[in-house]
Write a protein that binds this DNA or RNA. Structure first.
Length: 332
DNA sequence: TACCTTAACGGCTCGCACCT
DNA sequence: AGGTGCGAGCCGTTAAGGTA
């Protein structure tokens, strides 16, 4: 391992930029400060660093190229204003070593790992390496019923055909993130979040096991992934989890809800969001997209939940948007 | 005329009791 | 802790009517 002989909290004096981004002397400082991390450099070599950054909805996509330096992460995050994130990292080219208090992992091209920036770990770039990362607020994962429990700062993702497929999609996403428009990036970002259960399932961070809590979380995950599927039913979810319908139902009931009520609330919330959008979508499209096979049922359910018919709600939202556009004082 | 809402009815989900 | 069976109530479907 390269000996990191000096600790520096500011950007390197002589960075080598290898064309994946334009040079910005503040970038390195921002990158390290943003992650609550600090860097160490092998002063016998020229540090090697470049980065491109895109936002895809709530997740941040980065392609990072580094060499001959180490990055310590996770120290002092609790004391700083920096929000906790989970980072998915895939090695596109080269090698790196990641170390936390329990283990040392050597990663090569194609390997994937999950990092919790609230727990300390160090990334050693002993040679130039190109990595793609996605930074996700844990809340976004827990909202999808995906448990976020890290026992250490670094969790390897074990390779299998499903993980490989997700990784390839992830790398393609990172490669094209810069050229995609905001709307497309956001959509692909959402798709990636939906696939995170596969990555988490294959990482040591997922130890939900067969406990009731674990079953509940996995059930919510299935519902969040399939709320638009009109065939989703209690028995389908139970079958996928290899438990009986009554066990699944009891797990939800003990927490004051039921599986299908949970799916139902997700569907209606999603429908409300679609109808709040500025682009025109028909009520039929919204109903179909949210897993309602019957427009009649959707209309009745929406009215019961939100106090007005879908058409009226959409009209009200368009009117509010139009008022905001014509009244400059309404703009914040 | 297309799109949406309302009403009626059958099937499924929920909640409970009981059993293993 | 988890499975089975059953009844009540809610959800989803169909048909008819209303509205822009």
């Amino acid at each position: 391992m390269t000996k990191a002989s000096e600790i520096i909290a500011t950007p390197p004096m002589r960075p080598m930029w290898h064309g994946i981004t334009s040079y910005d002397p503040g970038l390195w400082a921002m990158l390290t400060a943003e992650c609550g991390s600090r860097a160490r450099f092998d002063i016998s070599r020229e540090a090697h660093c470049g980065m491109e950054h895109e936002q895809a909805g709530e997740i941040a996509v980065r392609n990072v190229e580094m060499g001959w330096q180490a990055m310590e992460r996770g120290m002092g995050l609790a004391k700083s204003h920096v929000e906790r994130h989970i980072t998915v990292l895939a090695v596109q080219r080269g090698t790196l070593v990641i170390e936390d208090r329990y283990q040392t992992l050597s990663l090569k091209t194609g390997d994937m790992v999950m990092l919790d920036d609230a727990l300390s770990h160090t990334l050693h770039f002993n040679h130039p390496a190109l990595c793609s990362t996605v930074q996700i607020p844990p809340r976004v994962l827990t909202d999808r019923g995906i448990p976020v429990r890290f026992s250490s700062g670094c969790q390897p993702v074990h390779a299998n055909p499903e993980v490989t497929a997700v990784r390839d999609l992830f790398l393609t996403f990172c490669a094209h993130a810069g050229s995609a428009g905001n709307a497309l990036r956001e959509r692909v970002g959402l798709q990636f979040l939906d696939l995170m259960d596969i990555v988490m399932k294959s990482s040591d961070a997922s130890h939900s096991g067969r406990s009731t809590e674990g079953m509940l979380l996995r059930a919510k995950q299935i519902v969040a992934r399939r709320f638009g599927d009109p065939n989703l039913s209690l028995s389908e979810i139970a079958d996928e989890l290899h438990v009986s319908s009554s066990s699944l139902f009891r797990a939800f009931r003990d927490r004051g809800m039921s599986p299908m009520r949970f799916a139902y609330s997700l569907r209606l919330e999603h429908a409300k969001n679609m109808l709040s959008g500025t682009s025109h979508v028909s009520i039929q499209e919204v109903a179909a997209h949210c897993g309602f096979t019957s427009l009649a049922h959707f209309s009745r359910s929406f009215k019961k939940e939100h106090g007005m018919a879908p058409r009226d709600y959409a009209a009200q939202q368009r009117s509010v948007a139009a008022d905001a556009a014509t009244d400059p004082d309404a703009e914040m």
